[in-house]
Amino acid sequence: MNVPALETHELSVSYRGKPVLHGVDIEVPPGTLTGIMGPNGAGKSTLLKAVMGVIQPDSGWVKLLGKPLGEVLGRIGYVPQRESVDWDFPVTVFDVALMGTYAGLGWFGRPGKAERARAMEALEQTGMVDLATRKIGELSGGQQQRTFIARALAQKAEIYLMDEPFAGVDAATERAIIGLLGKLRDEGRTVLVVHHDLQSAPRYFERLLLLNLRVVAHGTVEEVFQPEILEKTYGGKLTLLSDVARRVARGSGGGLP
């Protein structure tokens, strides 16, 4: 019982010989809402990408719901970083939401009535029904983010990974999104959110994961949101750690100089 929703062991990731994450060991309990925080370049997005299998780690492993990623495909949902989306792509809001339902279709399937209803319902929840036929490039920042949240909702996943869903959105959207995240948590789903605003973090999340190349602290907000721990997280980079990790990675033939 009580299998952690997400578990990583000694996860190390480097990009072209430059370490981004080092020895990350975390267990995220199911049904929780966790904020992932840390300074720029601390490896927050990289952690999500490694969990999703987009980046191959140098060492360590990831388990989701107690299983490797390959066995839980379709039970994981995600919201990409705004910058990584091609906003000129010719798709409408409804198309994007519908993509959330593709998981079970197989090679030749096509979304039917049930899938369309699911996508529409998700758009209703995020208040995007009126804009369903808009091209995504014509939306405001907040609307764009709502579209992708709707897609995640349509996925009906058990674990949600979200990369800065609050970046560049208006206050109303931010409130709406945080409300939806709380609802997801109450339904027993696990939500991990990369977040950068320290002010709002203790209000938004019940757990925090503080990253800076390695895990500085991980626990409930009360345990973790302490001045000295935050100081440790944001108080400059561990240059020695990244220097030595880079040399080790390079020497073992990992990346290029």
Binding site: K49, L73, D86, V91, M99
Partner: peptide, 14 residues
């Protein structure tokens, strides 16, 4: 469509 628009989502959902 999904592989072109969002390969990460496509990979994540198998």
């Amino acid at each position: 469509l999904v592989g072109s628009f969002d390969p990460s989502l496509a990979a994540l959902t198998g």
